[in-house]
Simulated assay, not measured.
Amino acid sequence: MIEASPEAQLVAAFANTVDLEDETDVLASAPEAAGWLLERGLVDRPVALTREEHRMLLDLRAGVRDALGSDGPSSPHVLAVANAVLRDLPVLVFLSADPDPQGPPPRHGLRPDPALPAARKAMGVLAIAWSEVAVTGQAQRLKRCADETCGWVFWDVSRNHSRRWCTMRVCGNRRRPVPTRPANAPPPTRAPDAAGSRSAHRPRITGTSTAHRHCEPSLPDGVTGPTPAHGRTIWGAS
């Protein structure tokens, strides 16, 4: 089985900072966003995001989520705004192993411009992670659930990259046509945690105080790693 790279895990964690079902947003305010950057190891000390930096982070996330749609990008405007953010995050290429001992180790010779403020450096790391996902073809496996009420970003482990829902048992069943039945027929019965029950499969993402490269993905049965909740891959450190 092809495992998600640390970059793919970081991109997924970033995209999943908003939970449509739970109606929560880890990046809702600038202080909350700063806390998430610190927990993920994208900054090495607490930072105060400006209003502009907070908006940039939200715009970048919106673009990443749109680009990961199971049916492809759906909003050219959202992508254009995110691309404008990326243009303000210069990335440098280095031949040396670690040109800046004060910063996180660069991967593949790429590093955000050291002259950037801390919050923008963190966004630069996210940009580098996205470039790795896109260039290596991992974007074919990193997808946003096709159920519009869910939108969870997951790692597609199917052989032909054909999976469209984070979990077929819940989100996939929501999209199935409802069979026609006689008007006088009694309503069907279902278990308390059947498809449509939010509490049965709602994801929980926890932050981590270590750098993103140390986070491990949830893996199927038989493979070492955390256990997915109801078929839904949850990325984050314990």
Rank of each mutant, 00 (worst) to 15 (best):
A84I: 08
Q102E: 14
D98R: 15
M123A: 09
P117N: 00
L89N: 01
A127I: 00
C145D: 06
L79N: 06
F94M: 02
F94L: 09
P99Q: 04
A134P: 00
L79D: 06
A82S: 12
L92T: 06
P114M: 04
P104A: 15
A80P: 10
A115M: 01
V133K: 07
A122D: 05
S74I: 08
D98T: 13
K143C: 13
G124Q: 02
R107W: 15
R141Y: 03
V125H: 11
A139D: 11
R120L: 12
Q140V: 04
L92V: 12
L142I: 08
R141W: 07
F94E: 04
F94P: 00
A139S: 13
P105E: 08
A139F: 06
K121Q: 14
A129T: 07
W130N: 07
T149C: 01
R87S: 11
T136I: 05
M123I: 01
S75V: 03
R111G: 08
E132S: 14
D98W: 15
A134C: 06
R120I: 00
A80T: 11
G103Y: 09
P99K: 04
V133W: 10
L110E: 09
D113P: 07
R141G: 04
S74T: 13
A82P: 08
Q138V: 10
P114I: 04
A127C: 10
L110M: 12
A115W: 00
V78L: 05
V93F: 11
Q102C: 07
S131T: 11
T136C: 10
A129F: 05
G137D: 12
P112C: 04
H108I: 05
D88R: 15
N83Y: 10
D147N: 15
V135W: 11
R141L: 04
P117K: 00
A80D: 09
G109H: 00
V133D: 08
P99T: 01
V93E: 12
V81W: 01
T136V: 06
P104C: 08
V78F: 07
Q140P: 00
F94V: 14
L92H: 12
A139Y: 07
S131L: 10
A97H: 15
A82D: 04
L89W: 03
P112M: 02
W152T: 11
R87Q: 15
V91D: 01
A97D: 15
T136N: 13
A146Y: 05
A118I: 06
V133A: 11
V85F: 04
P112G: 01
V81I: 13
W152V: 12
R141I: 00
K121N: 02
F94D: 02
A127D: 06
R141P: 06
G137H: 08
C150V: 06
P76I: 05
D98Q: 14
